[in-house]
Write a protein that binds this DNA or RNA. Structure first.
Lengths: 109, 109
DNA sequence: TAAGCTACCTTGCGATGCAAAGTAGCTTAT
DNA sequence: ATAAGCTACTTTGCATCGCAAGGTAGCTTA
């Protein structure tokens, strides 16, 4: 398991919550969106289990909808509970990001 | 296991490498240094296993040294291999940090 | 001599990302 | 028609990591 995969732990879940919050999205599109944002090579084997887990925890809800150009899609949207989880993620992310950035830049002291 | 713990995966190891690189340090002091930087409540149960793992992977080397005010301390310093690992961590951290910050801030689009 | 700090080590658990393998609908080329 | 290729979702099991919990022991001070 790569360093990148370790660093993504918890992060990926938060990113998915954030993207879905902005606009209801389905799994396959998430991999495209993540790539656009710079998180390339996030496989479906990562995304779908997260979606199922988030649904199980009642943070998101999914509904199947017909597509006019392909197979049916499962669109997910955030619940009230999921919104809180997103805010909690943002807080924790900032709480870690700032110390880490400081620690990384201690060379020019 | 908390969200914070998940977000720290891989991160803590990188931070420890960075602190040791700046100046050879021993385990107990690391918990103090991390706290000063804003990573509070990082327990010894997290730090010592990481140090042993890093040593096993030849990224750091430790030597026992007498202290004039307490028990002996095991000071660690980075190896050549460890310096490469630190640089790799910095790169990966930036590669993830920037996309995540973008994804988190998509609300005001 | 007891308390309290310093300093180190070990074990086992829970959570997560992810590769791998599978199913199936739809579109386009042959 | 039918094969190829894309879209789209699911499941299983593994590897890894942070960390709580519990333990050992030296040193200093009350």
């Amino acid at each position: 398991m790569s360093l990148r995969s370790q660093l993504l732990k918890g992060v990926l879940e938060g990113c998915i919550l954030s993207i879905i919050h902005k606009q209801p999205t389905y799994g396959y599109e998430l991999s495209v969106r993540l790539q656009e944002f710079g998180l390339s090579d996030v496989s479906e084997g990562s995304i779908y289990p997260i979606l199922l887990r988030l649904q199980k925890e009642k943070l998101i809800e999914g509904t199947m909808q017909k597509s006019e150009v392909g197979p049916k899609r499962k669109y997910y949207h955030l619940t009230e509970h999921g919104l809180h989880a997103l805010q909690e993620f943002k807080t924790q992310w900032e709480n870690i990001k700032h110390p880490v950035d400081k620690i990384i830049d201690i060379e020019e002291e």
